[in-house]
């Protein structure tokens, strides 16, 4: 009684799979943009001890990095309505991803900011630049440049982690997989297909971020 593989049974649901993949990409596009922005604010607050934000971000980072993403997501989607905050599944998913990535990228980008030699900042200060000007013109790009590979990895991790958003009925890729295998009972074919799709998505996101990094972050052709 050898198992008879039937990938046609998955192919029939190609539209759901394509939609799911697009939704996953959409989630990470918005999540990464806002998450890394939040992380940048957190990183500069912590690295330069900007009161009171440095303390607030410290508590936030520890709270998020020491609790499971699924619990964070459930708290936002199922817990917050108790306070009258009712969110649809997409808003909840995006907020959860932004909050999660924001915490991790705070720590990643902080490392980059702290790796900027003090002399650079002193030179800029001696030219009468303000702290905000120094951050924007002297610190930000080299700091991101130093940690870009780590940041790219974290974005991919959060994209793969977004599969748990299926649990609040956000119709992303894993939701599509669950839906399909409950219809065709082809769990092996469905999940191996979706796993391969995640693999391809992850490669694409990594490639895209590398491209973006060498263009906008490095801003300089490497010879």
């Amino acid at each position: 009684m050898a198992y008879h593989f039937d990938f046609i049974a998955v192919w029939e649901y190609r539209e759901q799979l394509a939609t799911g993949a697009l939704h996953t990409l959409g989630l990470i596009a918005v999540g990464a943009t806002l998450g890394v922005s939040l992380g940048t604010l957190g990183a500069v607050s912590r690295a330069w001890k900007i009161k009171p934000f440095d303390k607030i971000f410290t508590v936030y980072v520890e709270a998020i990095r020491n609790t499971p993403f699924l619990v964070q997501l459930f708290f936002i989607f199922f817990g917050l309505p108790a306070l009258g905050v009712k969110l649809d599944e997409w808003t909840a998913a995006i907020i959860a991803m932004v909050v999660n990535l924001g915490a991790y990228s705070t720590e990643i980008i902080r490392a980059g900011i702290q790796a900027i030699p003090r002399g650079q900042i002193e030179a800029a200060s001696s030219l009468a630049m303000t702290r905000a000007q120094i951050f924007r013109h002297i610190v930000l790009r080299p700091a991101l440049q130093k940690v870009w590979p780590a940041l790219t990895s974290q974005v991919v991790i959060v994209m793969l982690g977004s599969s748990v958003c299926s649990q609040i009925s956000a119709t992303e890729l894993t939701y599509a997989a669950n839906f399909i295998q409950s219809r065709n009972f082809r769990a092996f074919e469905t999940y191996i297909t979706v796993a391969l799709m995640y693999l391809v998505l992850a490669f694409c996101v990594r490639w895209l971020l590398n491209k973006f990094g060498s263009h906008f972050v490095n801003g300089r052709k490497t010879t």
């Binding site: 030699p117 002399g119 650079q120 030179a123 001696s126 030219l127 009468a128 303000t130």
Partner: peptide
Amino acid sequence: DLRALRQKVGMVFQQFNLFPH
């Protein structure tokens, strides 16, 4: 607030401290 003063005082450092990017 040292900006007015610093506009009148230039400084050159031992380690150059050019902005590498």
